[in-house]
Write a protein that binds this DNA or RNA. Structure first.
Lengths: 217, 217
DNA sequence: TAGATTGTTAATCGATTAACAATC
DNA sequence: TAGATTGTTAATCGATTAACAATC
């Protein structure tokens, strides 16, 4: 693997490739050319070959790419199969939905459980995973060397919990709280999910259509 | 407003600007220069001025940008204030979380209610909004000329409901089902949310760190 | 072997950055 | 008026596309 200066654009396309390849695999497809893949994904074959070539040589002249091999390679690049451990912080509706929708085990992660502050949910389960008292968060993260925290708590406690997680040595936070988290110089990786951003892009296009129509009329 | 060939990159930055400006406004700030804004957002002042100039002239030499004016302008561009109507299709954990977390009214949309198939939730409420029987979905969308459907149903019924929505004349679908929806040539706008994409980007970086460490060691 | 398709080098295109005259 | 900062034009940089020799 070369992986010298891989651009953000390329990285953000990798999960899309993975999804597409999983889809093709589930349909029983065995191989695909950059040409076909490009047509199916709305990308040029050149771009696909360029993207892959950032990480190695996964194809074969005259044949194309073996789907099963390629998806494992891309999965590897994206860090699945490494058994990164994850916990959920905040077992509300959103957190519950996330745990139920992902099959964390299939995705190659080790999901260890959830944490919440509400007495009535502590000790119960989500999808078979335990819900612990948030008081135990710090020691749990430390003990189990948890890699990733999925943060789905109300925004007013987001920073407080971030500090706790940081002290306990968390490595990455997947942040659903709509707040800018301050992780200082801890080097903690943060990936923010802003739902509304994509809704706004949608309404931008709606507004575009409306304006153009008005203009034409 | 000129709006000639605005690139996707620019459009995707607009919601970020809006969030930042809302944040500044809530802190009581009145004006800001492209220079300061750039430093706070990790963008160059040039880029910010270029981005805004796609849509008009919102600043003033020697002064900068009036925050309140600018955020209203960007909101306008993004189609807030237009009162686009939205419904939720699928009142499970994820849908419930979305409705509870957004303040749809503040965001400038008209949220009309949710639809579900489960008898035990039909007739109840989420956050004060009614939950209707999914059987009424088609006629409701038609009657109220609903603009946006937020699709948060299990994937195996996603296409079926998409077809219903399409027949009823929906204009846009905000798709959380992790399926590629087929909307034919209806012209329906679809914006897909793939949670796992961003998790994979996170673990990519984790894996990067691990590999580099191993390499250095 | 002939055909298909890769990985990569070179060419093009677009997006970001720099510079600066205009002006508040 | 002097200083600050815009909007825009030109320069640079990077990403995408095209082309093609290598080879399965």
């Amino acid at each position: 693997m070369k992986r010298t200066n891989v651009s953000n654009n390329v990285i953000r396309r990798l999960p899309r490739y993975l999804r597409k390849l999983d889809d093709l695999a589930s349909k029983g497809e065995e191989r695909i050319s950059s040409d076909k893949l490009g047509r199916q994904m709305g990308l040029t074959p050149s771009q696909i070959r360029q993207d892959f070539s950032c990480f190695g040589e996964f194809g074969q002249q005259g044949y194309g790419y073996n789907i099963d091999f390629l998806r494992r390679e891309i999965g590897q690049i994206l860090g699945t199969y490494r058994g990164y451990s994850a916990i959920l912080v905040g077992a509300g509706n959103l957190g519950t939905a996330l745990v139920q929708n992902f099959d964390f085990i299939i995705e190659g992660y080790a999901f260890l459980g959830a944490f919440d502050i509400k007495p009535e949910v502590i000790g119960t389960q989500i999808d078979g995973f335990p819900i612990y008292d948030v008081k135990e968060l710090r020691s749990f993260v430390r003990e189990h060397k948890v890699d990733i925290a999925i943060l789905t708590v109300p925004r007013h406690v987001a920073q407080e919990l971030t500090d706790t997680l940081a002290e306990a040595g968390i490595r990455a936070i997947w942040n659903f709280t709509n707040t800018e988290l301050d992780v200082g110089d801890s080097g903690i990786l943060v990936e923010n999910i802003h739902f509304s951003d994509s809704l706004l892009v949608l309404t931008y296009h709606l507004a575009q259509l409306d304006d153009r129509e008005k203009h034409d009329a």
